[in-house]
Amino acid sequence: MATQDIFNAVLAFDEDTVKAKTQVELDGGTDIGAILNDGLISAMDEVGERFSAGELFVPEMLMAAQAMKAGLKILKPHLSAGQSKSKGVVVIGTVKGDLHDIGKNLVSMMMEGAGFEVVDLGVDVESETFVKTAAEKSADVIALSALLTTTMPSMESTVKAVKEAGMATRTIIGGAPVTQAFADQIGADGYSADAPGAVKLVKQLVA
């Protein structure tokens, strides 16, 4: 099982080996779908599970995601239209007035690792920017992050703006002061307390 080597290398956070093994498999004629799904994506699923269980630390998870992306870069030119299609498009950002991005970056990385196309708008993002970008990219989900209680109202205004625009895009929220109750209160479609939970949530929403 050569794709297992790729899987193992991602879990060893070993970017060089992921690249080398991916190239070897590609050159050797292994099915590209198998390299992608059994090697890279399933490795990131495992990373997500281990991270959720508290076994993996954040820097390790980020290095695994980076190793996975390096392998994906080698595969990309060879992927068919169907294979290269992402699982969905997520527009993500920290809301207006808030400059905290650690949590948002974690979620962003894990979503990419799980096969979603992620458009990261950064921090201090206006409601209109979320709406406009989501429309342009035909996003499935808008993910909003906030660390400050003072910026939580920006989540509400963004969720409201999405609804007023008549978009089918779902909204999810997260961040230290945010709760499921707040998500319900502002009419967001979901809440997660951590990054792997956010990935699971998005998978459910686009299913």
Binding site: F51, L56, F57, V58, P59, I102, G103, A176, A195
Partner: peptide
Amino acid sequence: PTEMRTGGY
């Protein structure tokens, strides 16, 4: 310290 299991504070 950053809580290395979550990225929290």
